[in-house]
Nucleic acid binder design. Sequence first.
DNA 1: TCTTGGAATTGGTCATGACAATTTGCGACG
DNA 2: CGTCGCAAATTGTCATGACCAATTCCAAGA
Lengths: 251, 251
Amino acid sequence: MTNSKNARLKIVRPVRSGQTTEQVVARVYELIKSEHLKPGERLPPERELSKQLGISRPSLRAGLSSLISMGVLQSRQGAGTFLVDGPPALDSEPLRLLAQLHGFSFEHMFETRSILEVGAAGLAAERATGEQLATMSEEIAEMFAALKDPQQFLVHDVAFHRAVAVASGNPTLATLVEMVSAILYERRRETIDRAHDFNESLDLHRQVYRAIRARKPDEARAAMREHIVRAQRAFALEEEQQQSNLEQDRA
Amino acid sequence: MTNSKNARLKIVRPVRSGQTTEQVVARVYELIKSEHLKPGERLPPERELSKQLGISRPSLRAGLSSLISMGVLQSRQGAGTFLVDGPPALDSEPLRLLAQLHGFSFEHMFETRSILEVGAAGLAAERATGEQLATMSEEIAEMFAALKDPQQFLVHDVAFHRAVAVASGNPTLATLVEMVSAILYERRRETIDRAHDFNESLDLHRQVYRAIRARKPDEARAAMREHIVRAQRAFALEEEQQQSNLEQDRA
DNA sequence: TCTTGGAATTGGTCATGACAATTTGCGACG
DNA sequence: CGTCGCAAATTGTCATGACCAATTCCAAGA
């Protein structure tokens, strides 16, 4: 009645959910782009920012909450909202949800991880700096020291792989490696106590390291591929045991 | 150890931000997990859901807004909020922001894309179904038809690569390929009109296809690698021209 | 039977206020 | 004069409530 026929405005685009949310994201994006905001710095207070954008605080918060969940922002109550600093990282949550939603298998995750890390190992063999080589070596040493402590071993295992990814000199690649690995890591932490022998795993890590150190990309790739294949096998075994243990518990 | 740099494994994230937001995400995650909610289905109305969770509607909306920005949910005013349907996909926005924030270069993006797509091509050569092969072939045909229309050519170029990624049979991998490609695609769309000759590109696409069709993973990988290297070169050239054109405009 | 109008449903936005955690600065005490 | 401790200001967190806009659906009328 009130709007009789002017409602002819047929929006061609599929309804943009969150007009204002999008606005917030775009605004922050501009702040970053124009270098007015550097990593680690603080954003204007919500009350002020909402006025700047001409939107209400709840709406602003919806947008910020999106950016927080994307891992771009981080907020501390009483202190403020900050651009994350530190190494670039993507939140694994979206991938995890997607995997759950579509029933991705761990085999596929491992396969993807293999492709990413094999590539990273090859690049690392070409580009790793001395310091990065040192970091890898240190993590291997820590793995030696933790042969009797599965959880600790796993921590340094992950750290080694992260070091390789970083040494690839490709932050995009390193970010993806991190994202995929994080999901597998969490799952593995629950089952690794059932693993028996880390010597083989450790040896393969050392082969990867030696190949990178010797600047032999092909060998590094081959070693990493072999390592991940075996890791996947070990993982499958642990899962199996976990499964049978659960069945025993029920009995 | 004494080196305080690498021993900092901060896996714990300050949960301070988003107590309730996290709760919402967890709740939806449970809904999905327990299969009470299938792709394409509708969530309970916000007013009801907020009561179920014992939180206010704005708080609930903050959480939903996160899930929407992750690409898990989609909402239409007046209709409801739905679990996304269709092929699994991760939003590229987070990666784009991260790239902007840390100054990732396009070279690195291409390199990552190469690693992902080369791997996908290899897997596709092992697993592609007849239908998937047909899809690839059709896209190549469309590229033939669009030799004089850069924008259209690019559309089918992207579609071909997507088909290869899907044919890898690995949805995780396909999702990552999609995410990285989307960013490069957007940039490329702006410069492709300056490209001269698509015949070489088309020929390389056909080589990739033939290798996949012939079930020769190594050849498929090699062809894909070669293709992307050249695509990157072409891209760099177009960028250069774009640059000099801009300078001319200023003069 | 088909069209159409409106009411109910549902997401989108806003305003306001109370609350909690952190930071900061001032004052008391050594 | 310096240091510690507490209180106020700052800032994010959450709730309540209201209104708007788009969609859906059903019933009344052509």
